[in-house]
């Protein structure tokens, strides 16, 4: 039996995990029922919405844990709320109890998923380092990769760089190069590679199809924001759209010539299609209704606190009776 502060923390952690699992299940259900629709939001709002969504299990978990542990404290035991929510052993935690098993299994699973995602990130970083070593300095701070493949991208976590291949550079005009450069520099300015990595790590706790969809939506929103950054630099929208199409045609042509393209099942519309239509559209979408979202998170935290307490009592009563 673990008692005192450590016991308190382990009890709090078990409520966080219980709530997080419930929220992940709820979000998954809402997503499958198509209750969550990001497409009517602007690119920036979509990013905010997605961050809230992937952080919500842990945010709500911490909130519900705080509610339960606060109401279980002896100083607030007279408060009406403690009649509904009461963790009767807040400072005692038995490792060989159902709490112990539950926390251990969940912690093990979380560590396994985080480790798996971390290994992928490290592997990717190594490939990017090799690419960086193969590149040479180019005009306006970009790095050039000598190859027949047409591509332009930003990569790296610590010191991200903008890469452009010699094959692409040879086939684009000065204005097109400026557009691509500004687009990639916008990614660097916004720390998009780091954000994408962090977001990816957070989505690993969701079911795979959901995680794929979240990552795709986030990637598209980031690309659309970077396109908007190019527009803000006085570039014509139609020229940006044409550059996008041109690079897309060049890139895919080169890749199909040399390699077999990976077969992918897209959930929504294609990235380029969405980007061009969004770029040319006057309607940039709605903002995130922050007040409603915060109210919903608060309500969900109370619901999770009640749920965690109910499950806790139900399991303990059934164990005592058996």
């Amino acid at each position: 039996m673990i008692t005192g502060f450590l016991g308190f923390m382990l009890n709090a952690f078990s409520i966080i995990v219980l709530s997080a699992v419930a929220v992940i299940a709820l979000v998954s259900l809402a997503f499958y029922c198509r209750s969550i629709d990001f497409h009517r939001l602007s690119a920036e709002s979509r990013q905010i919405g997605l961050w809230i969504l992937v952080c919500s299990p842990w945010l709500i978990g911490v909130l519900s844990s705080a509610i339960v542990m606060l109401l279980s404290s002896p100083s607030v035991s007279s408060f009406a709320g403690s009649q509904f929510v009461h963790w009767h052993h807040p400072t005692e935690f038995a490792l060989d109890s159902w709490h112990g098993y539950f926390v251990s299994i969940m912690l093990g699973l979380a560590l396994l998923m985080a480790l798996r995602a971390y290994i992928r990130v490290v592997r990717s970083s190594n490939t990017i380092r090799t690419l960086s070593a193969m590149s040479r300095p180019g005009p306006d701070g970009v790095r050039i990769l000598d190859t027949n493949t047409a591509a332009a991208f930003t990569a790296g976590i610590k010191n991200p760089d903008c890469y452009i291949t010699s094959a692409l550079l040879d086939q684009i005009s000065g204005e097109e190069f400026a557009i691509i450069r500004l687009h990639e520099m916008a990614h660097i300015k916004c720390n998009d590679p780091v954000k994408k990595t962090l977001f990816y790590l957070l989505t690993t706790f969701f079911p795979a199809p959901l995680a794929i969809s979240f990552n795709q939506t986030m990637a598209t929103a980031m690309e659309q924001s970077a396109d908007a950054a190019v527009v803000s630099e006085q570039h014509d929208k139609a020229t940006i759209a044409k550059t996008l199409l041109k690079v897309r045609r060049l890139a895919v042509q080169e890749f199909t010539d040399q390699f077999r393209l990976p077969q992918i099942c897209h959930y929504g519309l294609d990235n380029i299609d969405q980007r061009i239509r969004y770029l040319l559209s006057d309607n940039k979408g709605d903002e995130v209704p922050m007040l409603s979202v915060l109210a919903f998170i608060g309500l969900l935290a109370i619901f999770c606190a009640l749920g965690a307490d109910t499950i806790h009592h139900a399991v303990e009563i059934s164990l005592h009776h058996s």
Binding site: V121, S124, S125, T127, I128, A151, A152, F153, T154, A155, G156, I157, I180, H183, E184, H187, D192, P193, K196, T197, F199, Y200, N215, A219, M222, E223, A226, L244, V247, R248, A251, V252, F255, L261, P262, I264, H266, D270, N271, I272, D273
Partner: peptide, 14 residues
């Protein structure tokens, strides 16, 4: 990979 932001995705299926 998720450490990069490509100008266009090579896996586009248009």
């Amino acid at each position: 990979d998720n450490l990069l932001a490509a100008f266009v995705s090579v896996s586009s299926e248009l």
